[in-house]
């Protein structure tokens, strides 16, 4: 690494230790509940319902997983979720970056109006427009299609603002000089900005991926066909709705926890991959020094 941390006196060492401990304490508040869930998911039905602090499976059993697997026929909802999440995220990032890029031009006529136009969409409570939104989807013949789910939240003011703030960190003069060399906007956008804001791009991809994967209201509202359910919808009935009065089958805690684990595995799988970009960004910065 650089000489940034060369002067490692005792003060620095104490600070580093305290700092590490502080982070460790925070991590524990996240880890313990998670381990708890994981341990319960691998416990047997009866054992999982005993009131204890479980940090290791009690009466180890994978029956929770097999019940989720069997009763949900999980491949189809999983595939639906993957399709909607991957395509939706790709399009979302593309469109949001485009708009984010537009907003870095301070003298663009109409910029302020367009920015307000975008900001207002962020203030609309979804509940207020749920019914009209359903009607729009119905009129476009999108009810019961995965397209409706891809289109739901296809662009968001949130991502636009984020991308804009990342693009702002790219030195403006670079674009100017490229323009003088005769490069078009699209080329500058693709070859310079998208590349240089990779860490930002990774951030938006991650956020959007998680958001889409956990998307719930849209599939509940727009999808009636059980064949087109996404994973979250299929799982929710199992994980949460324990209050039903005519419900006749028993969802023990291990089944619920297995459902939770299954629903977050894909996210856990994607995350380190995206995280690499942050790290690469950091290393890139370091190697320039």
């Amino acid at each position: 690494m650089s000489d940034r941390f060369e002067r490692l006196g005792w003060k620095n060492k104490t600070f580093d230790t305290l700092n590490a401990l502080f982070l460790l304490a925070l991590m524990l508040t996240m880890l313990i509940p998670f381990i708890n869930v994981l341990a319960l998911s691998f416990s047997s039905g009866v054992a999982s319902m005993q009131p204890d602090i479980v940090l290791w499976p009690k009466a180890f059993s994978a029956e929770g997983y097999s019940i989720v697997w069997k009763s949900l026929d999980i491949w189809r909802p999983l595939m639906n979720s993957v399709i909607v999440t991957v395509i939706g995220t790709a399009l979302h990032v593309m469109l949001s970056s485009l708009a984010g890029y537009v907003f870095i031009y301070p003298r663009l006529p109409g910029r302020k109006i367009m920015l307000t136009f975008v900001l207002i969409t962020m203030m609309v409570p979804q509940e207020a427009i749920m019914i009209p939104l359903y009607v729009v989807n119905k009129d476009l013949h999108l009810i019961n299609t995965l397209t409706a789910l891809v289109l739901s939240g296809l662009v968001s003011g949130f991502s636009i603002l984020l991308m804009r703030s990342f693009f702002l960190n790219v030195p403006y003069e670079m674009a100017e000089s490229a323009k003088i060399d005769g490069a078009g906007e699209f080329r500058i956008f693709l070859t310079m900005y998208m590349r240089l804001a990779a860490a930002g791009l990774a951030t938006v991809v991650l956020f959007e991926f998680v958001g889409r994967w956990n998307m719930f209201t849209a599939p509940v509202m727009f999808i009636n066909d059980t064949m087109k359910y996404t994973l979250q919808v299929a799982l929710k009935a199992m994980i949460i709705d324990t209050n039903s009065n005519s419900g006749t089958y028993m969802i023990t805690t291990n089944v619920r926890m297995a459902g939770i684990i299954i629903s977050i595995i894909p996210l856990m799988a994607v995350y380190p991959f995206v995280q690499k970009y942050f790290m690469k960004g950091i290393l890139l910065g370091a190697s320039k020094e």
Partner: peptide, 10 residues
């Protein structure tokens, strides 16, 4: 070109 980029979003 910028307006074109913005159009689909709008």
């Amino acid at each position: 070109a910028l307006y074109v980029m913005m159009a689909p979003v709008i």
